[in-house]
Amino acid sequence: MSGQIWSIGLAFGASPLALRVPDSPILTKADITDVAADFVADPFLIRLNQSWHLFFEIWNRNADKGEIGHAQSADLRHWTYDGIVLREPWHLSYPHVFEHGGEIWMTPESTDAGGVHLYRAASFPHRWHDEGVLVPGALADPSPLFWQGNWYLFACPSFEKHDDLTLFTSAQLDGGWRPHPAGLLRTADVRGSRPAGRLLNDEGRLLRWAQDCYPQYGTAVRAFEILELNPERYRERELPESPVLVAGGDSWRHGGMHHIDAHRLPDDDRAGWGAAVDGFYVEAQPDGCEC
């Protein structure tokens, strides 16, 4: 038998659609010091007070579920891990962290809890308060976006098959969510449905990232441009640069990649764009192992 061992890297480039994936990751399971970690994945970045903060899933082997960890960096290149910052009785992953209204928020995946929970930073980055459920249901990789005065939430309702994409909308972040009239945006499409990271507003151009789960989960990341988005209508197209992240020959991501969180860097950083990404390699089990 075999298992996917996920690690986290930082990719840089002149465009979020043309990133150079590093030969080595910035964070692996070996860097986790407070729990027995099987892997790290789903990285999200936020920059506050001249520091970069990285939130990500840690699979806690002893708890047999995901928990949210945190690391910090001044330059995106040298990182210090400082522990688990959010754990619940249920599995957590995909810690989509963002700023709105002078507060820091997070909408991690919480399918086992039966809904999308909204968390507010009570003391950033280490203490988080559960503000309640935004949308009920087992919705994988919930990805909120504030666009032209309205909120939108993309998620995958078929989190075992990875082949549907649904959309919700609201006039406010903390309540009033309803299904978008467009309904299921994609159905039975394992190559372009499940969210693969933060939607990107690049000076008015909206980009959506999707997990390509063919022929297996975590194969690649595809890129779509949102052409129309309002409370009544939705339209998108896949970009010619897609897929933007694929498996690599080096050991840490030779199996595949499935996440991106791209940010325009400060003017003094010549790289232009930086993105937190993840990838996996397959760890073969000893012969006869039934684990």
Rank of each mutant, 00 (worst) to 15 (best):
G255L: 05
V133R: 05
W177T: 11
A271R: 15
N60D: 15
L167G: 06
G192S: 14
F39V: 11
W79P: 00
W209P: 13
L145R: 05
M106P: 05
R235G: 09
T219R: 15
G183I: 12
H129S: 12
K65S: 08
R237G: 02
Y152M: 07
T187V: 13
L54T: 06
R235H: 07
G248W: 04
E109C: 01
I260W: 02
S193I: 10
R20H: 10
R270L: 05
L27W: 02
A155K: 09
A11S: 12
S242E: 11
E238I: 10
F159L: 06
P95R: 08
G192M: 08
H100K: 10
F55C: 02
Y94C: 11
F146W: 11
P16Y: 11
H100I: 08
G192V: 03
D202N: 14
S193A: 15
N150T: 10
H126V: 09
G176K: 06
I8R: 04
K65N: 08
L76W: 06
H259Y: 07
L86G: 11
I84A: 03
A284D: 13
H117D: 02
W52I: 04
V97P: 04
Q211H: 07
G132T: 04
G272H: 03
G83C: 14
E99H: 11
H78R: 03
C156I: 04
D23A: 14
D269N: 01
R233P: 01
W177A: 13
L48H: 10
L139E: 02
R77M: 07
D212I: 01
Y234M: 07
F168I: 06
V40I: 10
F12T: 06
A11I: 02
W6T: 10
L227H: 01
F39N: 12
V135A: 03
L265W: 03
P286G: 07
G218K: 09
W128I: 05
G132N: 01
D112R: 14
G149T: 05
R264A: 15
M1I: 12
A122F: 06
A220H: 09
E236N: 02
Y152E: 04
Y217C: 05
E241K: 12
S15R: 12
P243D: 10
R194Y: 13
A262R: 09
S242V: 12
L229E: 03
L118P: 00
H91G: 13
H180Y: 06
A18S: 14
P89H: 14
L265F: 04
Q4W: 00
L10Q: 13
A247Q: 13
F224Y: 15
L165K: 05
R198C: 10
H263W: 14
G176H: 06
G149M: 08
V21A: 06
P266L: 04
P125N: 01
R233W: 09
D287R: 12
P25A: 14
L239F: 05
V282Y: 00
E131L: 12
D267P: 00
P142A: 10
A171D: 05
E290A: 14
T166S: 09
Q4F: 00
V40M: 11
A210Q: 09
G288H: 12
